[in-house]
Design a protein around this nucleic acid. Structure first.
Length: 258
DNA sequence: ATGCCATGTATTACATGA
């Protein structure tokens, strides 16, 4: 069973790339971020024609997350994180599919730093940590764009980006505390020493392979023994009109209930 | 230290992204 995450940077403009990737990669579950469209304008018909059921949490112009499942409709469990009723940004969606609880996560970018956007990022991260604590005992995948570069192995060159929100000690500390609950960064776990990137700032940065690793598939401890392979579909970043992120995926062995 | 760029929405301009 293949679980994937893909920050599409606009699901409508990216539809040809998305449908092509679904056809080629055939993920069983695909979590999308930055769909950048409202609930009424998500291209559900096209996604369904590609063989995927979907749930989505849209927002006009910005953010927005979705969960796709091949051949079935995911059952939505929650949209938005608990802890702040005034937070109207669409960055979290949780659904049940294929015997798992799957969350599509789009953590705030947080730039410029310092400032209110960085404060929002840290507060959002704390709410994610609190909610994740309630999930870590089940079969759960937290998949998404976490907007954090966990270590200097996860970026081509930390120096030019040392003031960026994704590099800050407080951002990294929040991510470390999330993982301390027991979550497994599957890509890093299976490739402990490799330089692996999932985001490139622009086409020139991609040519130089000057990337960041910020998209993760975090597995709850109960799924650890089912982890088989993990990789990044790097080639999709080099195609026509690509997203700035590239898909990441992990393959799980069938569970006892599947 | 960074959006020259891309995206979407609504108008030729703005907000967002990392």
């Amino acid at each position: 069973m293949k679980i994937a995450s893909f920050n599409v940077n606009g699901v409508k403009g990216r539809l040809p790339r998305l449908l092509e990737w679904l056809d080629e990669a055939r993920p069983d579950v695909a979590c999308l971020q930055e769909i950048k469209t409202g609930d009424a304008t998500f291209p559900a018909r096209e996604v369904e024609a590609a063989g995927y059921g979907a749930v989505w949490h849209g927002q006009r112009m910005h953010h927005g997350v979705a969960i796709l499942a091949r051949g079935e409709a995911p059952k939505e469990i929650r949209r938005g994180l608990p802890g702040d009723d005034a937070d109207s940004q669409a960055r979290y969606l949780e659904a049940h599919t294929r015997g798992l609880r799957v969350a599509s996560v789009y953590l705030p970018n947080g730039n410029p730093q310092p400032g209110p956007k960085f404060d929002y990022k840290l507060a959002w991260f704390e709410r994610l940590i609190e909610h994740a604590r309630t999930l870590v005992g089940d079969d759960v995948v937290l998949a998404g764009d976490f907007n954090v570069v966990p270590t200097n192995l996860d970026i081509y060159n930390p120096w030019p980006w040392r003031f960026d929100a994704v590099m800050q000690p407080r951002t990294r500390d929040a991510y470390r505390r999330l993982l301390e609950q027991g979550w497994i960064d599957s890509t890093r776990h299976l490739h402990p020493d490799e330089r692996i990137y999932t985001f490139w700032f622009n086409a020139d940065a991609f040519r130089r392979n000057a990337g960041f690793r910020m998209d993760f598939l975090l597995l709850s401890p109960s799924l650890a023994s089912r982890m088989m392979r993990a990789d990044v579909d790097v080639a999709h970043r080099g195609r026509d009109k690509p997203s700035d992120h590239t898909p990441v995926w992990v393959e799980l062995a069938p569970g006892s209930g599947a």
